[in-house]
Every structure is written in structure tokens, then in C-alpha cells.
Design a protein around this nucleic acid. Structure first.
Lengths: 228, 228
DNA sequence: AGCCAGCCTTGAGGCAAGCTTGAGTTTTCC
DNA sequence: GGAAAACTCAAGCTTGCCTCAAGGCTGGCT
């Protein structure tokens, strides 16, 4: 998550500097800043950040207006940061589409935690863990944990599972799956695919013959059911 | 999002009742409650809720322990609710994997906003959906949801429905439909098409013999009536 | 009203898609 | 260089989807 681009918006330069330092120290490498509402919109449009920390009170255009403009075309996660304590402000923030609303003064560590929590939800594919009915998959380690036992994934199994996970819940066609393994010319590979699917099921499922997570869509393909 | 199942956990019965009322008034229809840590784990395992509101201080097992147990096998969104003001508690909450951490006393409206904000991230909207009179079709998953029950679509049913949906509202000729299934030479296939239409209606309609969505245009073909 | 054509409904049989297993081949790693 | 793991492929099996036809039911026409 530290590789996500963070845009920090605040018109108070001292606070902007402090925020920058907080994220820099934490290990974030791509940090953008803007010191006004209009500047924020410009940077957002040009640099396409992954997260925005938005101050409310700014001279040219307040945070609510900026957020409303952004929400017309984007669902980028936004945390609002402000000294305004009134409940009405908070509500307006959430109504405008904020993901979180934090009051100044704040604990740097809390801000980091909150940003991290939202990033995890907004970019779930970045955390590379899959919770299934009977098992938990760690894609980073390419291994499956089921009932405390560890099953390592082979290269092909890993590719298949990754592809299925990128389309979690949705049907992935047999052709599509074959293609991810052996490229464009996959005709005649269907039988091998079946074997890999079998091996995957032996690792992911309690009863591989009655799959609960890696399901067959007869005539269409396969799909992976993930839990929350 | 009001159709998501919310699990509320608090050992103070008065507060539990209040929380229940807050969500009920807001329009949430599926609300579960638990009055202790162990009870919470039991309900979570058995009922598979979509969101958990978790009090920290409980006699048998505190909220942090509950959350850690849940996080071993699930990434379900969790908002922690507590009277403990210390920063260390907050940090422990986030470290355990909480999505948000709200202090008591809190504004009911703020709680609702925060829950809504997290739900929006955790359950992003599915696309390629068809809203019909009695059912909702998810084309990505090739399944129909009617009265909460799931009916999977077969390959041919899927192709037909897709074709009808591409021409939503308009009449699609019998020949056209046959062609999408068995190609150019479809003569004599009309009877089989009728069978597929029947099967589709059994999944899409409340009364398959009196269709409201998949209508017959006698002598012409069929058409699909969609809402929205 | 009565008739006919077109559509509906049902059930049973066949067949193809997918499963499962094992054996042979290739790759990887010591 | 050898052993073990991973990959490929095919043969036989299983399952459930598809097909088709027979009989019933409408709506429209005379």
C-alpha cells in the first residue's frame, strides 16, 4: 500500500509540511501536495492519485466543493481533515462522499491507520489475500492455509488462482484461463486445465469433488467465490 | 446497502437496544445482535453477516480478541465502538484489523454515515445486472436472484438472456434467438427454443405461465421488459 | 361458436462437458 | 547426474444439460 500516490491538500503550509513528513517517514514514496482547492483539482486531474487527504477550510474553494466536483466522475477514497467540530460539518463531509472525517488536532498515527484502513478496502486486490470457504490463500507466499495446514501452490496453479481472483465472483471462461497459462494458442489444452483445476481444488476445498469456492459454470467457465 | 446483514455486539443491553433501533429506523432489515464476545463469534460463524459493530469492553472476551479471531479467516468490515479514549486502544483496534474506531458517546447519524461509507467500499456495485419485475439477473455470475433465492443459469439460457437484454424492450425474432444458440442452420429448432424459454421463465418469473418480463410476441418472437 | 395455428408444458433419452486417475514427459533443484 | 516435483495428455467415467416430440392450451380468425 505504501506505493499508492497520496495527494495532501491544505492551505496552511506548516501543516502541509507536517503531513508530508508523516507520510514520508511512514514509507510512502509517492506524495503530492496542493495548497488550495483549485490546485487540488488540477493535481487530481493531471496526476490521478490513489488517495486524497482534504482540508475543509481553504480560501478559494472549500473542501466540500472540491469533493463534490471529484465525486462527479471518480470514486477515489478521500479523508477529510478539519478543525471544524460541528456535527453538521461532519455530516456534510460524509454526504459529499468522504470516506472518513478526522478532526484537528489529530494523532499522526491515527491518521496513518485510518488511511491504511481505507486503502485496504478501496484497493483490496493490493493486499493479495483470499478468504475462501475452507481456506485462506496468501498470494505473496503462493500458499494455501487450510485447517492450519500449509499447501504450497505451483506456478500454474498460482496463475490460475490469480486470474480467478482478479475476477472474484465472476465467471472466467475456459479459454480465458487456458490463455493465461499457455498463451494465444491454447486449443487442446482444456484437458490439462481440468487437471490443474483438480489440483487447485485439492488444496482449496475440503471435498474437492463437491467444491464450495472454485465452482464450475457448465458450458461457461469457472468462478471463484470469495468470503469477506 | 440497507439489505446487508449487520451484527451488533455490546454487553450493555440498553445500548444494544439503542443501536438496534438506530439501524432499524434507518431502514436496515437484517440486524443481528450478540451480548458477549463468544456469542458474537458464534453468530458470526453461523449467520455470516456483512458488517460487524463491535464493542470493546465485554466480560468474557474483549472486542480486540474477537476481531483478531475473525481476521484469521475473514476480511469482513468491522467498526469498533468503545468508551475507551486512550490512543493506545485506538491503535490496537486498527492493528487488529478494524475498519473504523468510534468513541462513545457518539452521534447516531455519524455512526450511520461511517457504516455506510465502509459498506460502499467493501461491497462495490456489481455491473451487468438486469432488473426485472420479479428478479435480478447478474450476468457476470450467470445467476438469477428471486426472493433471495439463487438460480444459476445454464449456458444456453445465459446466451438467450444476453441476446434479449441487448435488445431490451424490443422484439427479438424466434429465428434470431435460435441463431444465437445453434448458428446458421436452426430450422426445426423452434421447439427446443420454447423449452429454453420455459426454463428461463421458471427462473425469472413468479408465475412462469403468466410472464411479466419475458413476453411472447405471438407470430414475431419474444421480448424482455426491464425496469430502470 | 368453432377451428386452426402457434405457443406452452412435460418427460425421457442421448450426449457432451467436465471429472478423475494414472502414466509419461519435462523441469527444477540438489 | 539423479531424484523429486511439476506439467501434460488421454482414457474412461459421471453428471446434468440439451434436445425433441407428444399432447394441451390459448388467441385470433371466419
Amino acid at each position: 500500500m505504501k506505493d499508492k500516490t497520496i495527494l495532501i491538500v491544505d492551505d496552511e503550509l506548516e501543516l502541509l509540511q507536517m503531513l508530508y513528513t508523516i507520510f514520508e517517514r511512514e514509507g510512502y514514496t509517492k506524495i503530492l501536495t496542493a495548497a488550495s482547492g483549485r490546485a487540488a483539482l488540477k493535481v487530481w486531474r493531471e496526476k490521478q492519485p490513489d488517495f486524497i487527504i482534504l482540508d475543509v477550510m481553504m480560501p478559494d474553494m472549500d473542501g466540500f466543493a472540491v469533493l463534490k466536483e471529484i465525486r462527479k466522475t471518480s470514486s477515489i477514497p478521500v479523508l477529510m481533515l478539519t478543525a471544524r467540530q460541528e456535527p453538521e460539518d461532519k455530516f456534510e463531509g460524509f454526504e459529499s462522499g468522504a470516506d472518513d472525517y478526522l478532526l484537528k488536532p489529530f494523532l499522526p498515527k491515527e491518521l496513518l491507520f485510518r488511511v491504511e484502513a481505507i486503502l485496504k478496502r478501496a484497493y483490496p486486490k493490493a493486499c493479495r489475500r483470499i478468504f475462501l470457504e475452507a481456506a485462506v490463500v496468501d498470494l505473496e507466499k503462493a500458499q494455501v492455509c487450510r485447517h492450519g495446514e500449509i499447501f504450497p501452490l505451483t506456478a500454474k496453479e498460482f496463475c490460475l488462482l490469480e486470474k480467478l481472483w482478479e475476477n472474484a465472483g465472476k465467471i472466467v471462461t475456459t479459454g480465458n484461463l487456458c490463455e493465461t497459462i499457455c498463451g494465444e494458442f491454447w486449443e487442446g489444452y482444456e484437458s490439462t486445465l481440468a487437471t490443474h483445476i483438480r489440483h487447485l481444488r485439492e488444496k482449496l476445498e475440503n471435498d474437492p469433488s463437491k467444491p464450495q469456492s472454485l465452482l464450475t459454470a457448465r458450458g461457461l467457465g469457472y468462478r471463484l467465490l470469495v468470503r469477506r
